[in-house]
Simulated scan of single mutants.
Amino acid sequence: MLRSLVLATLVTTATGAAGLGPLPPLPLLSAPDALTVTISKSGHPKADGTYRLECGAEPRGDHPAAEHACARLARFAKEGKDPFAPVGTDRFCAQQYGGPAVAHVTGDWRGRSVDARFSRANGCEIERWESLEPLLPRVRG
């Protein structure tokens, strides 16, 4: 009896309840990307502050360039790049100063947690900042 019950369960699980083939996987509900961006010392009082950005079916939040910022993040995703990755320790960076601007980005992007800091302390950090414009404001040091 137990053997029949186990076999019936295995057959039903493998073929679907009506014997019409395997059951399709449940769709995964993906939450929109949600980021908090804090900017300070940019030299532009209107750019400094904390902004919320949500990139889903349509951009939401109070980020001043929400639509363009979401489009930029979507390009990174399409290219398979991580815009929040720190500068590699093996890189040589030009010793140039791009100004005192700093940014902190936290939240969720593409299903993973983000906690990234940005500055303009050298050539590599300036390049990293500028690659994220307009998520981060345009700053010229």
Results as ranks from 00 to 15, higher is better:
1 M>P: 13
4 S>Y: 02
4 S>I: 08
6 V>Y: 09
8 A>V: 10
9 T>C: 15
11 V>K: 15
12 T>N: 08
13 T>H: 13
13 T>Y: 14
15 T>W: 04
15 T>C: 15
16 G>L: 08
19 G>W: 09
21 G>T: 15
29 L>C: 09
32 P>E: 06
32 P>N: 08
36 T>H: 08
39 I>Q: 02
40 S>H: 11
42 S>C: 13
46 K>S: 15
46 K>G: 03
56 G>P: 04
57 A>M: 12
60 R>N: 07
61 G>R: 07
64 P>R: 12
67 E>M: 08
67 E>K: 12
67 E>G: 13
70 C>W: 03
71 A>M: 06
72 R>N: 14
72 R>T: 06
76 F>N: 05
81 K>M: 14
81 K>H: 08
82 D>A: 05
82 D>N: 10
83 P>I: 00
86 P>A: 01
92 F>A: 08
92 F>Y: 14
94 A>P: 07
94 A>G: 11
97 Y>T: 06
99 G>I: 01
101 A>D: 01
102 V>K: 01
103 A>R: 00
107 G>S: 12
110 R>I: 08
112 R>N: 10
121 A>V: 11
126 I>H: 01
127 E>Q: 07
129 W>I: 00
133 E>F: 08
137 P>Y: 00
139 V>E: 00
139 V>G: 05
139 V>N: 02
